[in-house]
Design a protein around this nucleic acid. Structure first.
Lengths: 344, 344
DNA sequence: TCCTCGCTGTAGAACGTTCTCCGACCGGGG
DNA sequence: CCCCGGTCGGAGAACGTTCTACAGCGAGGA
């Protein structure tokens, strides 16, 4: 189109001059506000197009909106975010809002810092995916900018919530494994950041669901949980712990797909075949689980739907809704090659 | 700390009043500019701390910097970005710059739109990872904001470049496979967005390196390239094409780890064992390649180093350097379980 | 004593928008 | 003919910073 050179930006004033109107009029057209005739609107639109005008988001942010939505997440390597983000992106695509991501790592302070940075950058709304920083801080953020929290089951008036029915998801796995004759079904789970005030983290709800399901099957006595980080290495450590001490489980339910990969490594090192000697199930049904060399049985949490929903709720809040909304989506079990009948 | 409530923000004016000085003085302290006594600096710092002041990035952007660095990439699922981003984050962590990501997908227009959005948001610098939109547009962006391009070997005065020595990387794989006795070594590659004006895309350089290495080993006649997308599905299609038509290769070098996974699936469906019937190598050495069920031989492109370097170069440009810099990092081969002696 | 100089600190104009008023104009009813 | 209400367009004050220009001051040299 036009040379994009490094010169001065085209501003609303240039457009106004070019169209022979006031800047106020241009602004009105830009925001399609009340008080412009069709003729004026058209004239201004024309001038904008001719000058290749693009509004300066930073300047807009000083008074109005920046048309920017921020998503905060801990780690890009966790592939389950990709589905959620696709959902968010899909919904936002049709709007004039722009999506920007921040990956802060797992540290509570780093995450809080990122959240504050997003607020300082005047973002119009925030989506926090499984935030690992203090709930009190999140409430503070939510008080100053529309916010949706994905993952944690803790609700609040200040923000909307989109969660996976994690207890239900855990039950799906336990039912599946128990149905295959397994009794010693162990779980690997993660410890969230301690003292952050979240009581409904996905891991916690998942653990609760696991225990309930085990009880339902009369397997209370066989329940066993190893707690490490949701990473390959964490899964490996959990797997080693579970498979080398005490009566050996015949099935391991890993709270996340990556962790399942670590358990797999531990099993292989111990000479256990999957699924003949050990059944293995993951959670989140990331792209990883579907890969041919892996073929991991996993629980699909409908990430795309969660993302779309979160984006929709957030825009509603940006538009002014004040009452909180809470949405829970149902997971489904995807059986692949890593689970089989219990060895006898 | 302080209640973060939704009230009015603490501004530079509040700090100035509280410290009994002018806003100019506060601004100077903030930017640690010249012309403030130690006493004043300390007094202002104190006031800032007491009021829990945080600068309003959007407002700063109107005149000075926003202290925001944007990274543009196509798809989060491509795990090779994670290493690069870690590197970028690591370097930026020590500074006051904040990192924000944009994932635009593969469409040229979407990517260009995102890049423009970042410029409009007055970001201080941009890192473009393998941009798939028109080079001309990138030059335009680079003319108005400091820019570093990662991946493409095309250089320009307007931006700095950080690349992996992809030809060298391809040679590593060919040498390895040829050393194992393979002759029919095929490559799966990607077609970038056509007509975007990039002549040195990583794929292209990789293909060139592959052809040169094959020639060096006297294997010109066996060279064969299948071009699809760098995705599991793309790899599958390429694998099917290579393994079912013409003389069957005994080794496939996939231009990306994900694609290798697709080739693996194709091989499995065709009843070929890896590595006994078919050797398989990937590229980028993503976390995926190291997983126990996978153990993919791959080429490590030192993503962390690339990221750190890109961040360093970008900040130098932000600080005023005008002359272009070009950095190339050397890849290394990581041999795992998917490559073995050629079947005979 | 006066001038110059270096150092601190301040006033105030930008920056590109939004948005509240307010004025001008027009048509219609009394 | 006057007034009223509604519609359209514009003036201009924010918004929270940065940064240039300049004023004040004390010290040191002529």
């Amino acid at each position: 189109m036009h040379p994009v050179g490094g010169g001065r930006r085209v501003t609303i004033t240039d457009v106004a001059r070019h169209a022979g109107v006031s800047t106020s009029a241009v602004s009105k057209v830009l925001r399609n506000a009340y008080g412009v005739s069709d003729a004026m609107r058209e004239r201004v639109r024309g001038a904008m197009a001719e000058l290749d005008y693009r509004p300066h988001a930073a300047a807009r942010g000083m008074r109005g909106r920046t048309y920017t939505i921020g998503v905060l997440l801990d780690n890009l390597r966790n592939a389950s975010f990709a589905d959620i983000l696709d959902g968010v992106g899909e919904h936002l695509r049709a709007t004039e809002y722009q999506l920007l991501l921040g990956a802060a790592g797992f540290g509570a302070e780093d995450q809080a810092r990122l959240a504050r940075a997003m607020v300082d950058r005047q973002m119009d709304g925030l989506i926090l995916i499984g935030p690992g920083f203090a709930r009190r801080e999140v409430l503070g953020v939510a008080a100053s900018v529309p916010t949706v929290v994905i993952g944690h089951h803790d609700t609040a008036d200040a923000y909307d919530t989109v969660v996976d029915a994690d207890a239900e998801g855990a039950a799906l796995v336990v039912d599946h494994l128990a149905g295959l004759g397994h009794r010693r079904i162990a779980l690997t789970s993660a410890h969230g950041n301690a003292g952050t005030g979240w009581t409904g983290t996905p891991e916690r709800v998942q653990r609760r669901g696991y225990r309930q399901a085990m009880r339902r099957h009369g397997l209370d006595a066989y329940a066993r949980i190893a707690t490490t980080a949701y990473s390959e290495e964490g899964g490996y450590r959990a797997g080693m712990e579970l498979l080398t001490s005490g009566p050996r489980p015949t099935a391991v339910f890993a709270g996340a797909d990556v962790a399942a990969m670590g358990v797999f490594r531990a099993a292989r090192e111990l000479g256990l075949a999957v699924p003949d000697d050990l059944s293995l199930a993951g959670y989140n049904n990331t792209a990883l689980a579907a890969l041919a060399p892996v073929r991991l049985t996993s629980v699909d949490q409908a990430g795309g739907l969660m993302g779309r929903t979160a984006a929709r709720l957030l825009l509603e809040r940006v538009e002014g809704r004040g009452t909180p909304v809470r949405v829970s989506v149902s997971p489904t079990l995807v059986v692949r090659g890593t689970t089989g009948p219990a060895p006898r």
